[in-house]
Every structure is written in C-alpha cells, then in structure tokens.
Design a protein around this nucleic acid. Structure first.
Length: 421
RNA sequence: CGGGAAGUAGCGCAGCUCGGCUAGCGCGCAACGUUCGGGACGUUGAGGUCGUGGGUUCGAAUCCCACCUUCCCGACCA
C-alpha cells in the first residue's frame, strides 16, 4: 500500500479528553474515530488490526473444533422473556418497537439465540458435542462508556457456545476453549492472567476470566513484586499482608482489564428454551452448555495498553496492520524512489503486507508517524544509502537499526518476521 | 445515576475574572518559492451559527437561566 493512496489520518497532538494511553494512541494513529460516546468507526488501519485479530481467533477456534456462524443483532424480546433475562439484563438492553409494534432488542449477548438454534436442529446425542461461534457486534446500553473502545456501547465480540451431552463432555469442551484462549492471547503478544471468577448474570458454575494487567483495568488482580507471580486477588486481601502463594512475599493489588471470559453454563438456557436431546439410554435430557467470550475490539485497546512506548504503538507481528514499512526519505529523488519501490515490490512478492511511505514530507515526520502507527519493521531508504546500495532496517520493538546491502534487505525482513528465507 | 471538569476553524488552545471582537495563536489545509536523514522556512490564502435556546444590555465568546454533548472519579457492568 502506498501511503499517499491510503487513508491514515495521524494526529500530532493528543485529542482533548483522551486520557488512557490506548485511547490516545488509537485516535492519534488513525485507527478509530468516535461518532458519539461509546460508538466508534474503524478506519483502514484499525480495521486491518481488527481483521488480523479476528483471523487469529478464527484459526484457533476452528483448530479447537468450533464452527463459525453469524447470528442476528435484532432479537425478538419474547426469547429473552423465556429465559427471564429480559429482567436481569434490562439495564444494558437497548429495546424498541418496529412499525408493526414488534418488541425487539439489539443483542447484548447471544445465549438465547444460539440455544434456540440448537433446540431446532439437535435432537440426538449422536449430534453432540457441538461448538458454534461467531464474531459479532454487541450492543449494551452502557451508563458510562469509557476509555475509547475499552468499554463501548457497540463493540465486537467473539462468542462461542458449546453443547454437550454430559458434564464430562462440558469439561472437555471448556478445556479446549481455555487452551485456545491461551494461544490466542499469546499470539496477540499479551501476557495474560487467568483467574477463577463469578459467573454473574450468565449463570452456571465454573468460570474463568482472562485479564491483562493495565492501569485502566476495571478489575483487580494480585501481583508479587518479588517473584513475579500474578493471580486472583484473595477475597480477604490486605495490602502488604496477603502472602504470595509462590514465595510467601507480600502481594500487591494491580488493576487488570478483562479481555476474555469462559463459563460452564450447565442447563440454564437449555432448560428454559427446551434444548433437549435423546440420549443413548432413550431418555430426553437438556444439553449441557458452555459459553466463551472474547472482547475483540477491546483486545485492540488491551494490546496498545500493554505494547507501546513513548513514541507510539508497538504491534506484535501477528496482528500488525502491516508487517513492514518502507520509508522513502526523499521521494523527489528518482534513485531513492526506484529503490524504495523495488524493495516494496520485493516484500509484496514474498507475501508480506508492506506499506510504502511515499509522502513528500520531511524525514522527521515520516519517522515519527512510522513509530506512532507501530509497524514492526521499517526499511529506511535514503539518498546516501541508495547511492551506496545500503538500506537500514529498524526494529520498532527494540528501537535498533541495522544496515544491510539492498539485495539482502527483503530476505532479512522475512527472516526477522519468522518466514524463513 | 451521584460528584467534578470541559465545549471557541479539521486538531490543540488563548481570550471570559472586569461586556467594546470586525474573535486570535500554534498545527494542519491550498498556492508559489527555497529546503530535504528526526515533526524545515518564507510569502500569500481559504476556513468560525464562539455547543443549543432564551434572557440582561446601546452592545454578549465574555454576565444570568435552562438544556445538550464530551471527558474523568464513583456506582453499575460477561
């Protein structure tokens, strides 16, 4: 992609009102734009990151045996009345009537819808287990949207739902998701903390939250400064008094942001929506369910919170909007531009997503923008280097620069990106 | 929903206390020229219902009232 033909509206200054780092950087790097509180547009760069994260999630979900579906946002309120959640979720539900007076809501979550689906199609233990997932927009009437896309009224979630014939099966399905989540977050460059959690409005018994340590977190975890242990905050936690389960040192409280949550639901929804199957013993039984959520849009913010420096975002390779950026420092110099384009095409021919900054701007601005948008590697093409056949490779993460002969640059990039040569 | 802060050009802000504005500054934007390895410089130019509505006044960005919006803290929250 040529920068001049793309749409990357970077901002030099922090927008007023954005205090969280991820909020500031997501606006400054031209990832998102606010329409109204808690409602955001994704701009090309932000959408690229979103798509990459979704791709990681899809790979891991599919690998774990889940199948993708796409459920509606528009729900008839009756189905919510059947499970009683029209009451328990009334504060977050956005409700309205259509022209015929049909009562509808914008889906805040999809247990009811997926269970209704299972009720229609699954009738035998032979069809189980099944795990269906989707990546969808959720709507919640947030009283106080916060920190940009961290807590939004309209946000993107991956939600998976498992159906099993018994508790043993549920444990297995749950475990598959649990492990997939660990891989997903690792691939997104995050160091997660998993804690047992309350199942809250979802119902069910066992539940785990996947969190990252972050100053804007709305939850709390315990951390041990001595040995690096991090885990659930003890219910009887007292600052400096609670002891680390690993080294017995004093624990401290840290705020953490929830990015995933898995639940063993049991039969709450299958009972109320009559999702039953005929088991091997000829008896009709309710399906045993689990549900598994990842805040996909929030994940973007979480990654920025965890992976940034004073200059901007530092994307992990796996979810970066581009893998390599070529900086042509003097675009009016034919030799520089020719070389930059040659490198750019070379990268693309190797299957890499490359961005060529071909703007007629000062070198400083280009360096700063490159650092702001956080592309993992940058190849710098300058006048002097072009004449000598030398380019520089900058590593966004380590902030180091190495020089290479022009004809080696593409291969070096591939190697650094783990693509081999 | 309670408490606090803020709304002036695309972005960031000053002006408001003490009414005189034909509303400024920086960035960005357009044109031309000079620059060209860390947010260059000069000249010229475009761009504004001062959040909205009402009130006070000869005169309101500025004073008064109401409302709207955004941000932060809290409460709430897969």
């Amino acid at each position: 992609m040529y920068w001049t033909k793309y749409f990357i509206p970077t901002l030099k200054e922090n927008p007023a009102g954005a205090e969280a780092v991820s909020h500031q950087l997501s606006l400054r790097a031209g990832l998102v734009n606010m329409l109204t509180a808690g409602v955001y547009s994704y701009l090309p760069l932000g959408l690229r990151v979103l798509n990459r994260i979704e791709s990681v999630i899809r790979q891991e979900m599919n690998e774990a045996g889940a199948h993708e579906v796409f459920l509606p946002c528009l729900h008839p309120i009756e189905i919510w009345e059947k499970t009683g959640r029209v009451e328990s979720m009334k504060d977050v539900m956005i409700r309205f009537e259509d022209q015929r007076g049909r009562r509808l809501c914008l889906g805040p979550t999809h247990e009811e819808i997926i269970t209704h689906l299972a009720q229609q199609y699954i009738h035998s233990y032979r069809q189980l287990p099944v795990n269906l997932y989707q990546i969808q927009t959720k709507f919640r009437d947030e009283l106080r949207p916060r920190f940009g896309i961290v807590r939004a009224a309209e946000f993107i979630m991956k939600d998976a739902y498992s159906f099993d014939r018994d508790e043993k099966g549920l444990k297995k399905s749950y475990d598959l998701m649990y492990q997939a989540y660990q891989r997903i977050f690792k691939r997104c460059g995050l160091d997660i903390v998993i804690v047992e959690a309350d199942s809250g409005a979802m119902g069910g018994s066992i539940s785990h939250e996947f969190m990252v340590e972050s100053p804007i977190g709305e939850d709390a975890i315990a951390a041990c400064p001595a040995c690096g242990y991090r885990g659930a905050l003890p219910t009887d936690f007292s600052e400096g008094g609670s002891a680390c389960p690993k080294c017995n040192g004093p624990l401290v409280k840290k705020s953490a942001l929830e990015i995933g949550h898995v639940f063993q639901l049991g039969t709450k929804y299958s009972n109320s929506l009559n999702a039953v199957f005929l088991d091997e013993d000829g008896k009709q039984k309710p399906m045993i369910m689990g549900c598994y959520g990842i805040g996909v849009s929030r994940l973007i913010a979480a990654v920025i919170e965890c992976l940034h420096d004073e200059k901007g975002i530092v994307w992990p390779v796996e979810i970066a909007p581009f893998q390599v950026e070529v900086l042509a420092l003097q675009v009016t110099d034919v030799a520089v531009m020719d070389l930059a384009e040659k490198l750019y095409n070379g990268l693309r021919n190797c299957g890499l997503d490359a961005l060529l900054d071909d703007r007629d701007e000062s070198a400083g601005r280009k360096f700063n923008d490159a650092e702001l948008i956080g592309i993992p590697y940058a190849i710098v093409v300058g006048k002097r280097g072009a004449a000598e056949g030398i380019v520089e490779l900058k590593d966004r993460r380590t902030n180091s620069t190495e020089k290479f002969p022009v004809n080696e640059a593409v291969d070096i990039c591939l190697k650094k990106l783990g693509r081999g040569v």
